[in-house]
Computed example of a mutant assay.
Amino acid sequence: MKYRKGQFVKVKVTGIQPYGAFVETTDHVEGLIHISEVMNDYIHNLNVFLSVGQIVKAKILDVASDGKLNLTLKENDYFRRQERKKEKKSVLDEINTEQSIGFESLRERLPDWMAKAERY
């Protein structure tokens, strides 16, 4: 099969390294999904998102002269949803630094913070 830039393909993860995941198409063409091409967020451990044997839909970024594929998962709906989950902020981010903070003000705000935390 002839692969081209921009095409979506299903690939099977054959190996995971700290820098990316090695994959293979159904007709045994090899490729790499670099860790920076999994999602726009920072990823510390690729094993949290991918595992050997997993089949994913990826977009071809480039086809090397030797036929190997350079792929991205950034346009895969599953990985986009994972990014949106990370966009939720901590209730601690909502604390206004200009407000006075002490034991009494913390006691007053704690029930509200607990309610917000339970919603996440």
Score class of each variant (00 low, 15 high):
99 Q>H: 14
20 G>E: 02
99 Q>M: 15
78 Y>N: 13
47 N>I: 06
36 S>K: 10
44 H>R: 08
7 Q>S: 05
17 Q>L: 14
116 K>C: 01
44 H>L: 07
29 V>G: 03
103 F>W: 12
85 K>Q: 14
57 K>D: 15
34 H>E: 10
102 G>E: 04
88 K>D: 08
59 K>Q: 15
116 K>N: 03
32 L>T: 03
65 S>Y: 07
41 D>G: 09
107 R>T: 04
45 N>V: 01
116 K>G: 02
40 N>S: 07
35 I>W: 00
78 Y>F: 15
117 A>W: 08
76 N>Y: 00
52 V>W: 10
114 M>K: 04
43 I>H: 06
40 N>G: 11
21 A>N: 10
87 E>R: 07
79 F>G: 04
77 D>C: 09
57 K>V: 14
94 E>C: 06
41 D>V: 09
89 K>T: 15
110 L>I: 12
22 F>T: 09
113 W>E: 10
92 L>I: 01
5 K>D: 01
102 G>M: 00
60 I>V: 11
49 F>C: 11
66 D>I: 11
95 I>S: 07
73 L>E: 03
84 R>W: 12
84 R>A: 12
30 E>A: 05
79 F>I: 03
112 D>N: 14
53 G>T: 03
41 D>W: 08
90 S>A: 08
18 P>S: 03
46 L>H: 05
68 K>I: 07
45 N>K: 05
50 L>V: 00
103 F>I: 15
50 L>W: 03
119 R>W: 11
44 H>E: 09
101 I>H: 15
107 R>K: 04
33 I>A: 02
63 V>E: 01
19 Y>W: 06
52 V>C: 10
53 G>K: 04
91 V>Q: 09
37 E>Q: 09
88 K>R: 14
19 Y>S: 04
118 E>S: 06
20 G>L: 01
13 V>F: 05
76 N>G: 05
95 I>N: 06
91 V>K: 04
69 L>S: 04
37 E>P: 00
14 T>L: 05
32 L>V: 11
